[in-house]
């Protein structure tokens, strides 16, 4: 094989193969974007949800939690926490609001962020919106 398979053949596979799959990937990216409205729950992307997403980001919730399975593995999955809490935004707000400033002795702790009522509402709205994204049946059960 060493003789018949030359360096220029290897090079052509590299260039040709890469180009082909880059183009295919661009096509699939375009198509995925076309299909997204069917699953991504964009009809519920309200001003409140958008503010909630921003709060999610600037407080780095992803640094402890997973959201739809991506993030850190230190604290519970939150993509379905709205469902786990019996579709109660109040329960979610109550949990976030009641975190002790100095944590819970011996237990993994979540910071007290000091959100006001509007901010709590926005975060809860964001978690509700997230739970309504069609993730094709993931997670396997309510525990996330």
């Amino acid at each position: 094989m060493a003789d018949r398979f030359t360096k220029s053949m290897a090079r052509n596979i590299y260039y040709g193969g890469s180009l082909f799959f880059i183009l295919l990937f661009i096509g699939l990216t375009w198509h995925t974007n076309e299909e997204m409205p069917k699953q991504d729950n964009r009809e519920n992307l309200t001003e409140s949800v958008i503010r909630g997403k921003n709060l999610w980001e600037v407080n780095n919730c992803i640094g402890c939690h997973t959201l739809l399975g991506e993030g850190a593995y230190f604290a519970p999955e939150l993509g379905n926490v709205y469902l786990r809490y019996g579709k109660s935004k109040e329960a979610i707000k109550g949990f976030i609001k009641s975190r002790p400033i100095n944590g819970i002795p011996g237990r993994r702790s979540m910071p007290q962020f000091g959100f006001d009522d509007q901010e709590l509402e926005d975060i809860a709205e964001f978690l509700k919106y997230t739970s309504e994204i069609d993730t094709l049946g993931w997670p396997p059960n309510i525990q996330g």
Binding site: K7, A10, R11, I13, Y14, G17, S18, F21, I22, L24, F25, L28, H31, T32, E35, M36, K38, Q39, D40, N41, L68, G69, E70, I133, D134, T135, L136, W138, P139
Partner: peptide
């Protein structure tokens, strides 16, 4: 080297799909 990097890109680009199983992207 050519063969290795060719295989990396041929498999790895569409392989991105292993992250698109459960995030609201098409089946």
């Amino acid at each position: 080297l050519y063969v290795i990097v060719a295989m990396s890109l041929i498999t790895g680009i569409i392989g991105t799909g292993h992250h698109f199983f459960w995030i609201g992207t098409p089946a």
